[in-house]
Design a protein around this nucleic acid. Sequence first.
DNA 1: CTGTTAGCGCATTCAA
DNA 2: TTGAATGCGCTAACAG
Lengths: 339, 339
Amino acid sequence: MRATINDIARKAGVSKTTVSFAFNNPSKISKETFDRVMRIADELGYVPDPVARTLATRQTGAIGLLLPQSIQEIFVNPHISEILRGIGEVCDREGLSLGILTPLKGVLSQTIRNAAVDGLITLGIGPGMSVLELFRQRGLPFVTIDGAPAEKIVNVGIDDELSAERLMDEVLARGHRDIAIFTLKNVTLSDNGDHFSLTNDRRFAGFTRACERHGLAPERLRVYHTEVTLESGRAAARAILAEPKRPTAVICLADIQAFGVYEECRLAGVSIPEGLSVVGFDDVPLAQLVNPPLTTLGQSGFLKGELAAQSLVELIAGKTVESKALDAELIVRGSLRSV
Amino acid sequence: MRATINDIARKAGVSKTTVSFAFNNPSKISKETFDRVMRIADELGYVPDPVARTLATRQTGAIGLLLPQSIQEIFVNPHISEILRGIGEVCDREGLSLGILTPLKGVLSQTIRNAAVDGLITLGIGPGMSVLELFRQRGLPFVTIDGAPAEKIVNVGIDDELSAERLMDEVLARGHRDIAIFTLKNVTLSDNGDHFSLTNDRRFAGFTRACERHGLAPERLRVYHTEVTLESGRAAARAILAEPKRPTAVICLADIQAFGVYEECRLAGVSIPEGLSVVGFDDVPLAQLVNPPLTTLGQSGFLKGELAAQSLVELIAGKTVESKALDAELIVRGSLRSV
DNA sequence: CTGTTAGCGCATTCAA
DNA sequence: TTGAATGCGCTAACAG
């Protein structure tokens, strides 16, 4: 049985308060008692129970990243790793722990109920989704990333619609008319039919606008429902390469999918961009390293994470925080050519 | 103020127990009272407090991954992402949450004291390190990954020494004698001088054995102290390429560093493997996608994470668990040639 | 099936 | 400077 604060107090001949002070507020007791208490605590291997402390202080010293996917799916996406780095930067700075919160047994609301955190960052969750109501109930401060800016919701993200429009503009301006699109299909894990693809929807809105402006019927876009994984990108690429009339360009809504396209093209002897133009989203660190370097819509995952976490910290501290729109930049590299 | 179990009990005209049962053990109360309690709970927006519950049940439903680096450093390494995927697989299966535990304000022991988890997985922490004593004090079950197998310690990992020896054997057998090595330098974050590079040390032991067998003085190896990042790999690569007598091969203790070498070689117009052979460790998913595909010592991060987490779950359940040695395989691809 | 009671381990206000 | 008392919100024997 682990030693408790009572054991220490008894053995040291002082009260619980004194022991507590020794650990949390040493200046309030004399040096002698402090030393004695600590020595005994050391002998008995006493460590204050963090859970009990949390119950008493009402703060956990942890924030959570709430994701509607399984952990499995998360860490195949380098962009999310970048977001985590940004969040981590703030955690280090503020001395906070980080919890990765995913649906428990497929039920996200379960996760939220059980989350022992001071606040949450969510990814891809927008207004109207039922989980937000749970945050309210629990009184949990939260910040969304890639959510939808709305009343009373602090969001951090780029303008996905505009960004997608700009990207499609560039592709169309280069003469492409037969275009494939790899989507962000996420397994739906909510308990009420929410689907977590706000980003997907907004980008398609942008694509549509660009197409209409260039006189291309949006229906002409060939949509492949892909997950955000290398393998899914490869599978869809194989499908494309096998088609009788191959598209001249493929737009991947995540860079990681594009890397899969690269691989299949290499295997099939199709050179990029001569045989197929490829563009992506995110500009993950490896995008500039592949050959040819990937044309992509750059957004800083690190910054998204950092700003979201910083905002959350302020929210927890009771401050008022505004949503933030981040810059996104079309980065044209060698993987896109004119036809 | 959030509603508590007392509020619900009073309003529903029942006792706390009944409310508790309604949430945790509905079969023990009648359907009518259950419905009434839940309706009122719903009206008042009541959600049981997870912290209080944890205090009473003595279990958090979470496990932690304890890392001696900052979060920033962790997520630049794809191999760790793979490990996280493996751990996540088990978390999903078992309905557990995952905490990323890193040094709080540079002090790992602080993190351990405050960790509200049922058990821990550590990375690169071996016997004799002071943090292990803290686990004991807190009575926390733990499993190490890439630690050192020892009495009473459950470890999961490959035989790094043997693996490194095999890899060096191959490099030497191909005639290389002027070899650069990029190490795993980790910022030391412990409070007592522990250094977290067990893996680094063991691999060097393996290198040394291979060198001696081939009649190459181990001192001839050119050691570059690099971090496990792309940038660090690039920086060291630049140093190599600038040297008057360039090595013929570079061994990176992490694939991610090798990608940095690829990039600098491309910029410098040095072709791989003609101008420089490159080999790595881990076989991260992208290793087979770069051009030329990377020769590397393959180990499954996913499996490491999965086995470690599975072992931890069993340990928490009170079972006895053995350490596990995983297979590692030298994967020869195009980036290594004979001289 | 439901209520009473006693913890879980610690923080903190108020007296002494 | 120290101690007694109270509360944090919930669970779980045990009794009814």
